[in-house]
Design a binder for these strands. Structure first.
Lengths: 155, 155
DNA sequence: TATTGTTATACTCTATAACTATA
DNA sequence: TATAGTTATAGAGTATAACAATA
């Protein structure tokens, strides 16, 4: 009941979406204190793990249009978190700067803080089981994109 | 690895967002075959459980601005799935029509189909455990909104 | 004076096509 | 001819304020 309004019964897929969206929103809120958006974080993560990646490859990995990537990369480059180095005269390799690596570390810390709060009431064994179940679902359903669209700032 | 690109290590909150967004996207896709959006489904669900609800109360329950609700209700009313009945000359009560109740039933069926596929590889006990864990997270984190913003059509 | 519903508007995120330049 | 990156534009979804009518 919310304000005396009956909540309809919902199943596991609704709960999954609901809790997932909550986690994503929380993450976006924490990132915002560093003037970053979830998409920026996704880029830093992938480039961090794959130095020299091309924009095309990155856009495929993120499931994001290359045209959108351009603006996000511009923003990251302007803030010296990432740089484009020319491979030949038409394609670039993407690399994190020292500042970008620091930002990535900060994002990891911020995620740990988030998870500590989100999972505070969960016994460690239950959290471990949740993580195993989620990984199974990712594999079984071939969920590949590394950054997903729910990652947004909302409310 | 996606196309030879290394995926960075991610934690349980990322997985939760990822799988949740996947479920939401799948749901949106199935709804689209009936020309409905997730927000419509959320409205039908809440009004179905609370006949006579006011728009104000509904907007609070959904965590949605009343101004946005107006257009969504217009659409549902135009399709005779829902009606606004005047309570007094400034407020209305919201009610499902017979067609609205049928739509709600169809949405429930479609959700079952979705869940059958999404959880196909999950042993029943593991699914039951997942659902318990998710309910605990909803309660512990006071996640109240009945329709969440991840519910959108994407890609 | 407060509340209900509505209109109008701006902003962000996403999608798509068309374009430049290089290979 | 195909590819990498970019620009421009249109469309959703969302946020906010201002408004009219009524309690």
């Amino acid at each position: 009941m919310i304000h005396g309004v009956k909540k309809p019964v919902v199943g596991p897929s609704f709960l999954l979406s609901q809790v997932g969206a909550y986690a994503a929103r929380d993450f976006a809120g924490r990132l915002a204190t560093r003037d970053l958006k979830p998409a920026h974080a996704g880029i830093l993560r992938i480039v961090g793990a794959n130095p020299g990646l091309s924009q095309q490859a990155l856009s495929k990995t993120l499931g994001m249009f290359a045209s959108r990537l351009v603006l996000l990369l511009d923003e990251l480059e302007l803030r010296h978190l990432l740089e484009r180095r020319a491979k030949d005269r038409r394609s670039h390799g993407l690399y994190l700067t020292a500042g970008g690596r620091r930002a990535l570390t900060a994002i990891e810390k911020l995620t740990q803080t988030l998870e500590k709060k989100l999972f505070a009431r969960l016994p460690p064994r239950e959290l471990a089981q949740l993580e195993r179940t989620l990984r199974l679902l990712v594999t079984a359903n071939e969920i590949t994109s590394a950054v997903h669209p729910a990652y947004r700032e909302l409310e």
